[in-house]
Design a protein around this nucleic acid. Structure first.
Lengths: 142, 142
DNA sequence: CAACAAATTGGAATGGTTCTAAGGTGCAAG
DNA sequence: CTTGCACCTTAGAACCATTCCAATTTGTTG
């Protein structure tokens, strides 16, 4: 019931809240994101979903991902130029982009850090969101 | 002389350091970036440069911008999906993306903030760079 | 000034995403 | 029910930013 649940059917609920329908495509896409909590591209999601829904189209994958982003069930992330990554982690977190492997890791943020970072904004700036991106290398043994 | 100068000919120097030539195209592009310190796209740079160098090609603009980025004279920035923005501000700064106007503002960072933010990284993560992006609205009266 | 490397050019090609038009799906009112 | 209608999905075309390519041009060095 809370706003932070990621239960299987948070989806149906959230969609309904926005006056949208729960469809097989939307559900499978959301499941696929929850199951493997990495940062797939739309293409990658397309690939994963096809085994379940062989006739789904790439356009639908884009549509559904966009819908999930609207419903705040998924975050869209863009580093550098290149395909958008989709991230089902809803807790406040930063991203670490490993330049060797190309992998993206979530870094949980300590309580209050975002608030603190926001204090650097001069008067007149009203931030609705903050994104923190690290680039570098992560030790392989993790 | 110093690593932080942005004098007109820091360019020639930096290029030489990398074994590259100083060309009219590279110079005009760099000038154009220094003159109006905003966050133009390659296309926008192309437009601005054409009045000076009417026969320059878009490919050259991309090439030169890439060169400037390599030489650390310009930063390439990507918010959301969409064209890369080029930023001649070399001091450590965050970006504020005004969602109403689409404009991007530089926010200077207080001494030590990046170091501090970096401390949230768990062991084994070695960050070479940190990027902070705010989204929201900025008061128009600025 | 010849020869060679570096840089620029226009146009074609690419990759990710969005658009469009046509067809399905499922609830809702008669 | 069954008809209407809004919502969804689909395939493919279109789009846009960027990169690639092959052909010049420019500059430097021997």
């Amino acid at each position: 019931m809370s706003t932070l649940t990621s239960t299987p059917d948070a989806l149906a609920q959230r969609l309904a809240d926005s006056g949208l329908r729960s469809t097989p495509q939307r559900e499978v896409i959301y499941d696929v994101l929850l199951k493997k909590r990495d940062h797939p591209t739309a293409d990658e999601v397309f690939a994963r979903v096809k085994s379940e829904l062989p006739t789904i189209s790439l356009a639908t994958v884009y549509n559904c991902l966009e819908t999930l982003v609207q419903c705040n069930l998924v975050r869209a992330v863009n580093f550098e130029r290149g395909p958008t990554l989709y991230c089902p982690n809803l807790r406040p977190h930063a991203h670490f982009h490993d330049e060797q492997t190309g992998a993206t890791h979530d870094i949980d943020l300590p309580e209050g850090l975002l608030a603190q970072v926001t204090t650097i904004l001069p008067q007149g700036y009203d931030a609705k969101s903050v994104e923190i991106i690290f680039r570098g290398k992560a030790q392989s043994a993790r």
